[in-house]
């Protein structure tokens, strides 16, 4: 069952004399309990997509089109009041810079109480306290943290705190927008492993936005690859990363240095740069850099093709042999 259904979703950033199509007609179904990793380079629209769906963008400088259904309700058509009930209670977000989320003049406990005041005004102080301690235990933090100020905690601890905060109201969806990118690998793995463990218990669907494919390979069931605002390929990680259908997916995988046993994994760069999204274009945005591109790619926009009902791609000339296809 899909918990979040994004349909024909587009976001444009409005400049003085130009429009940037940051997200371009994206269709994406996110199933309950199936963690999704959204990958792409900078400027691929991976963050904008979720910001747009949650309506966190400035309405004066951006324009959102399309629909996004959460449990049957269109988030885009909702009034602000209705939306505020969904945000944080049903869908919560953790951003990259946890250190900047907290005001330095309040204790961690204050932040963790604020949410209850807004969303659950009837909750008693004792209950809140119990909940808080439980949540902190969930992310491996001692309860003394409640009395501490943000500057007394390390980056990793603050990131854990903001994850605890996002889980307070037991949301159905947790969006992590490069939430662990700034952390050290060891800390990053600790946090992601902890979330992986509590996911089933809380019936949580995780959406992980990152540029690091190894994180997705290790911690997500499905992967969605974005390029220049468009969805390129989506499917189970084992399928997409081993036998990519879209040439971009393959090229992206190849540009990573690997840890192959013999240590000779070569990195191959993708020629050219991403197209300028300020200018309108036809066909596939990757056509200029793609080794498989034909005239058709430059003229006709690829439609969604399905390998099976969970794996699809947008390409006229999909790869046959996948990763091994040189």
């Amino acid at each position: 069952m899909s918990i979040l259904e994004i349909k024909d979703f587009s976001v444009s950033y409005l400049g003085d004399d130009y429009v940037v199509r940051a997200v371009d007609q994206v269709n994406l179904h996110i199933e309950e309990g199936v963690s999704l990793g959204i990958v792409g380079e900078s400027g691929s629209g991976k963050s904008t997509l979720m910001l747009g769906v949650l309506r966190l963008l400035n309405e004066r400088t951006s324009k959102t089109e399309g629909e996004a259904f959460f449990a049957g309700n269109d988030l885009i058509a909702m009034t602000r009041k209705e939306l505020s009930k969904v945000r944080w209670a049903e869908i919560s977000v953790v951003f990259q810079k946890a250190m900047n989320v907290f005001s330095p003049v309040h204790t961690i406990g204050t932040f963790l109480t604020d949410i209850y005041r807004v969303h659950r005004p009837a909750a008693k102080a004792k209950e809140i306290r119990k909940e808080q301690e439980e949540l902190l235990a969930l992310v491996n933090l001692p309860k003394q943290v409640l009395k501490m100020y943000p500057h007394e905690l390390s980056g990793g601890m603050l990131q854990r705190t903001s994850i605890a905060m996002s889980l307070m109201l037991r949301p159905k969806i947790l969006v992590m927008d490069e939430a662990t990118t700034a952390l050290d690998v060891i800390t990053q793995n600790q946090i992601l492993t902890e979330i992986l463990e509590i996911e089933d218990k809380l019936q949580l669907t995780r959406i992980l936005i990152t540029h690091d494919m190894s994180v997705v390979a290790n911690f997500c069931k499905k992967i969605a690859v974005f390029y220049a605002g468009r969805l390129m390929e989506v499917g189970f990680t084992e399928d997409v990363l081993i036998n990519p259908k879209h040439p971009y997916t393959r090229d992206l995988i190849k540009s990573y240095p690997t840890f192959a046993e013999d240590g000779t994994g070569t990195v191959v760069r993708i020629p050219g740069t991403m197209i300028d999204l300020k200018k309108p274009y036809e066909g596939c945005p990757y056509a200029e850099r793609c080794s498989q591109a034909t005239d058709r790619c430059r003229k006709e926009r690829p439609l969604e093709s399905f390998v099976n009902n969970s794996w699809s791609y947008y390409c006229h000339n999909p790869l046959e042999g996948g990763r091994a296809d040189e």
């Binding site: 990793g156 690998v185 060891i186 600790q190 190894s214 290790n218 084992e238 990363l241 990573y256 690997t258």
Partner: peptide, 23 residues
């Protein structure tokens, strides 16, 4: 520990991270 915590983009090589206490 550091090396075991570095993942690969190939889901066939799942990492087997060694746990290290604390920070």
């Amino acid at each position: 520990a550091l090396i075991s915590n570095c993942g690969d983009a190939d889901p066939r090589n799942k990492m087997k991270p060694l746990q290290v206490k604390g920070e």
